[in-house]
Each structure stands twice: as C-alpha cells, then as structure tokens.
Computed example of a mutant assay.
Amino acid sequence: MKKIILHKTKDKAAWQLHPWIFSGAISQKDRDLQSGDLVSVFNADREFIAYGIFNSVSRVAIRLLEWHPERVPDADWWRTRVKKAVEARRHLLNDQNNTCRLIFAEADFVPGLIADLYGDFISIQVHAAGVDQIKHLIVDELVQLLAPKGIYERSDIKSREYEQLADDNGVRYGDTPPEYVEVVENGIRYHINIVEGQKSGFYCDQRENRRLVAQFAANKSVLDCFSYSGGFTLNALQAGAAHVTSVDSSALAISTLKDNVQLNGFDTSRSTPVQSDVNKYLRQLGEEGQKFDVIVLDPPKYAPSRSTLEKASRAYKDLNRRGLMLLESGGLLATYSCSGAMDIETFKQVIAWAALDAGKEIQFIHQFHQPEDHPVRASFSEGEYLKGLLVRVV
C-alpha cells in the first residue's frame, strides 16, 4: 500500500477523526500515486493515523476511511459499512413511509456517496473518484440487503468537477425507473421522477419538518415557496389547510405537484400551483396586498462555500423580508437554509435583519433540523447542512 506523510503541524484534524485531509497538509508521498489509490497516512514521526483514498487533483486530497490499522478497507470492509448504514434505518420503513436516505456519505463512513431509497428503487450519487471505482461493491451490497427493482445512478453534480469526474448517469442494477415512481412519506403518496428530477429525485430530508409545519396549517391559507413536487403543500392539505398556493420555477416540478395533489384525492380547488420565480412572485403578492397565515420558504443552496456566505446572507435576508411582509400578526414563517456554510446563529441574525427591514416584530418558536437518516458525525460538523426556524409575527 502506498504511503503519505503529513506535515508536523497539519495532522491534528486527522487524529481527531475528521475525514478530510487537504492537499496542503501533505509533506511526502510515494511515487506513482493515482487518484483512487488506497493509502496509509502517517504523521511526521511515522506513526500510523488512518487509511484513506487519495485524489491527485482535488483540494480534498485524502478522504479518510479507517483509523484502526488492523481494519484494512477491503471489499468486506465496504460491504460492512453499507450494511451498517442500511440496518440503522430499517425502522423508518413501514406502510406510512417507504423512502429515506440509506447512505449519507462521510456521516456513514462511505465518503462521497449518497444512496436514497424510493419505494422499489434506489438512487445513488457518487462525488469522489475513489468511491467511483468501487461503487459496484456498494450496488451489489444494496441489492443483497434490499432487493430493489432497480438502482439508478444520478452522478451529474458539480462536485464531481473537483475530482475530474465526468457526469455518469444510468441503470446500475435491474430495471430502469419508470417516468414516475410512487413513494409514501408521512402517509402521503408521491409520484417522483428519479431520472430527470432534482438531485436524486426527492428531498426526504424535510420529512419531519413537513409534518411539524402541517400541525399549524388547519383552516389556514398557506404559501409554499420552492415547492418542488409538493412536500409541504401535500402535508398542509392533509392537515386541513383552507388553501395552499405552491410556487416553483420548474415546469416539471409544478406538473408533478399537480399530479400528486390528485393522486392523494385532495380537492384541487384548495390548491393553486404557480410556475414562477419565487422572488418575483413574492414581490407581486406584496404589490397586490395579499396576506397568508403560514408561509414556507425552502430555497436551494445559496451558500455553497464560506466564501459566498456574505452574498448568500443578503439573498436570504431579502427573500425572508418579502415573505414576512405577507404575514399579519400571528402569522407563521417556516424558513430554511440547506447551506452548510450557514450556521444556525448566523441564520437567526439574518432573519432578525429581515424582520427589521420588513417592519415586523418576530419570535423564534422552533428550530428545524435534518432527520435521523441524515446523521451528523461528531468529527464532521460539515455534515450538518439543513437548519430552519419557525417564526411568529407578533
């Protein structure tokens, strides 16, 4: 096995079980190292730290896997990691819920790999070159554990560029997913598009938050922004919302949402899907003097890195200001950020600024988090990306 030695002052995070080593931390490495090679990592005194996967082109030069020298990451090691991740989530699957995240990359010690279960199908995404080389093992173990009808890869994410990996989409096992795969979450049925939908097909990280927000929706007017296939919309309708307006810029998302409303037998007169840029539509609603009882703001990632946090904060503030202006006293705003670079305290400050600009007094009455199938590893705080606030206008 090839060896890598770290600079004397650059080994602290690795000893503390952080799974990333950046290229600048490397002091020496064996010749002819190739991206995807399994390596042994040592400190400057030649003490073993961990095994990892090397990448010659990525800023994250090594993704650490195992800190016990006797546990060499071979095929059985990978299979055991996959099995542990899947078994930890089996209790989430029942007749009310047949979708969840099966593997959450570094959090499950399978760096650079995401696997989501959608009913009879599994969708995977591969972010790292080393894992790309052994994904056949992961696919085979998922087949052994869950016997899906098919496994489809959606590796067309921007992060692959940093590993010099081309997009790679296609069937990895079994059948090609149909145009719409039916799943159940919180007892609500969804048609989702694995092949052409956003990300891996569906955002199961908001499962618990959709149910929590729906508790406030009975007999209320709800505005669901960035609605995608209708997660918050459908939960609100199931809870007895008087009316839900759902806004998304994607024609496919709005079409899927309409289908999901009908799929669950909800009264379509209680639902108004709108294809529009959200900020533009919020501005229009403000000019018309429209008001709502509950507003959901679940935007895409505004801050992909810390260097973009200042710009993202301004975007979050403006978005939430427009939302707050559509609420009267007693109105509720459920607002989210899926940007890992945005911590919860900064997000609170941004919302406070938005309220000040909107001329609203607010209270924070609940904090939202990602669910247990998106765990946060103690040594990898970067995995805590989803946060949200339930805000009441006083």
Rank of each mutant, 00 (worst) to 15 (best):
residue 213 V to G: 13
residue 41 V to H: 10
residue 218 A to G: 01
residue 245 T to V: 12
residue 224 D to C: 01
residue 16 Q to K: 14
residue 287 E to D: 06
residue 119 G to V: 07
residue 383 G to T: 00
residue 174 G to F: 10
residue 305 S to H: 11
residue 9 T to R: 15
residue 25 A to P: 09
residue 82 V to F: 10
residue 375 P to A: 15
residue 106 E to S: 08
residue 254 I to N: 00
residue 279 N to A: 07
residue 167 D to G: 02
residue 375 P to H: 07
residue 115 A to Q: 04
residue 318 D to R: 04
residue 325 M to K: 15
residue 129 A to N: 14
residue 77 W to A: 14
residue 130 G to C: 03
residue 343 D to K: 08
residue 265 G to M: 03
residue 95 D to H: 14
residue 31 R to M: 05
residue 286 G to N: 11
residue 169 N to F: 01
residue 51 Y to M: 00
residue 312 A to Q: 08
residue 307 S to N: 14
residue 377 R to D: 02
residue 324 L to T: 12
residue 184 V to H: 01
residue 68 H to P: 00
residue 208 E to V: 12
residue 61 A to I: 06
residue 162 Y to L: 12
residue 37 D to W: 08
residue 339 S to H: 03
residue 229 S to E: 09
residue 355 A to V: 04
residue 40 S to T: 15
residue 174 G to S: 07
residue 206 Q to Y: 11
residue 75 A to G: 01
residue 88 A to C: 15
residue 205 D to R: 02
residue 313 S to I: 09
residue 239 A to I: 02
residue 371 P to D: 00
residue 346 T to E: 04
residue 179 E to S: 08
residue 198 Q to H: 13
residue 273 P to V: 01
residue 17 L to V: 06
residue 204 C to F: 12
residue 130 G to D: 11
residue 261 V to Q: 13
residue 377 R to H: 09
residue 258 K to T: 11
residue 32 D to E: 09
residue 306 R to F: 13
residue 36 G to Q: 04
residue 75 A to L: 10
residue 48 F to T: 11
residue 68 H to W: 08
residue 261 V to M: 12
residue 29 K to V: 12
residue 13 A to T: 04
residue 1 M to H: 08
residue 86 V to W: 08
residue 138 I to M: 01
residue 190 Y to F: 14
residue 217 A to Q: 09
residue 241 A to F: 04
residue 37 D to K: 04
residue 292 F to K: 05
residue 23 S to T: 07
residue 55 N to T: 15
residue 58 S to F: 04
residue 239 A to N: 07
residue 144 Q to A: 14
residue 26 I to M: 03
residue 338 C to M: 05
residue 314 R to M: 08
residue 203 Y to C: 04
residue 227 S to C: 12
residue 292 F to Y: 15
residue 156 D to N: 11
residue 256 T to P: 10
residue 205 D to F: 02
residue 281 Y to D: 07
residue 156 D to P: 01
residue 146 L to Q: 13
residue 44 A to C: 02
residue 1 M to W: 05
residue 32 D to F: 08
residue 309 L to Q: 12
residue 99 T to S: 15
residue 163 E to W: 05
